[in-house]
Design a binder for these strands. Sequence first.
DNA 1: TTGCGCTGAGAACGCGCGTTCTCTATAGTA
DNA 2: TACTATAGAGAACGCGCGTTCTCAGCGCAA
Lengths: 197, 197
Amino acid sequence: MDATETTVITADDALRTRAIDVADRLFYTRGVQSVSMDELRSETGISLKKMYALFPSKEQIVLAVLARRHDIWTAGIADAASRVSTPRDRLLAIYDFLADWFTEDDFRGCGFINSFGELGATVPAVAEATRDQKASFQQYVAEVAAEAGAPAYLAPQLAILAEGAQTTAAISGVPDAAGQARAAAATLIDAAMGSRA
Amino acid sequence: MDATETTVITADDALRTRAIDVADRLFYTRGVQSVSMDELRSETGISLKKMYALFPSKEQIVLAVLARRHDIWTAGIADAASRVSTPRDRLLAIYDFLADWFTEDDFRGCGFINSFGELGATVPAVAEATRDQKASFQQYVAEVAAEAGAPAYLAPQLAILAEGAQTTAAISGVPDAAGQARAAAATLIDAAMGSRA
DNA sequence: TTGCGCTGAGAACGCGCGTTCTCTATAGTA
DNA sequence: TACTATAGAGAACGCGCGTTCTCAGCGCAA
């Protein structure tokens, strides 16, 4: 009707969402390259023709999956942060969020790290999406750390702990990595704040 | 001649070594699945027939590459540790080793983590090799931490920092992750030892 | 009712892969 | 010298992939 309509939800949008749901589950469980477009077709019920009308290529489906994972991650961190009141607790809430995630049945590590390992070297857009996600997280940590009045060196340390916890939990299958990282984070925060106080 | 000969180096061993050298470089740079057996053939000068005489399958080449990476990693950590004298310094030497590694031109993250992301879900032997490597490292850290008289909770924290540094350096391309992890490790060690002293 | 345009299902295509097969060249033995 | 066994090069195979093409079916205008 007019040029400003931006939030109309079409039937195609619903199909796109369904495709991303299914693709995310399959990609995350088995890796991108081991899931064929034909399997995506049979699992979604969306024909190949329609699929290629919704997405120009498989790569774009991967990127759409990663974009949604980014949104879900950001919302999850924000939700965990909203349950506590101090900046210090908001920093620690990151690891509580991780702890919940790690205990999910289908947890298989960070989808970005996995995709980066599989495709980062050959698909630049995947490497970029992964870098963006990590940079966004690092900036979030830096902002909350700044709110807490912590010195600048603290935030990268806390981000590294979060990354390491994800990798360790994924590979070793030990969900406790979140708790270990949380305890380390608390020590680092206290040390940083103590030296400041 | 007799049944006890175990260290005879044959011409095939030399070929195997060359194949592993080349495969490691290509797999690490571009990922396993994007490197074909034919490319391995042309880069090594070893015919496909010979290659399949040396290794029963591509998967076995991947596992041989990972096994050698395990050895190189272990030797590198031991070498870094040998340059210092106290258990505390041996723990910190881990991050000095990482710092050197991260600044290499072709650094592209931990080969195990990358392979795990690419193949861990579909090739059980790759997942197992990765778990073994990480478990071996965790045990090393635990041993040195015990030598230092640190409480048991310290070692997993230090291992998580090392994992996180590798991931962060690989994705964000920031070699400084090693230095940040080292500083965090020093803080954690001092806090753990301080509470013990 | 008839014609027309469009949507979409799924068959088909071309390519590249891991692996195997064939055939040649050579070295050792009588 | 003649024969045989072996090794090896690289052509060939079968399959599975991402993507494209064909054609049937349907809604709508006149």
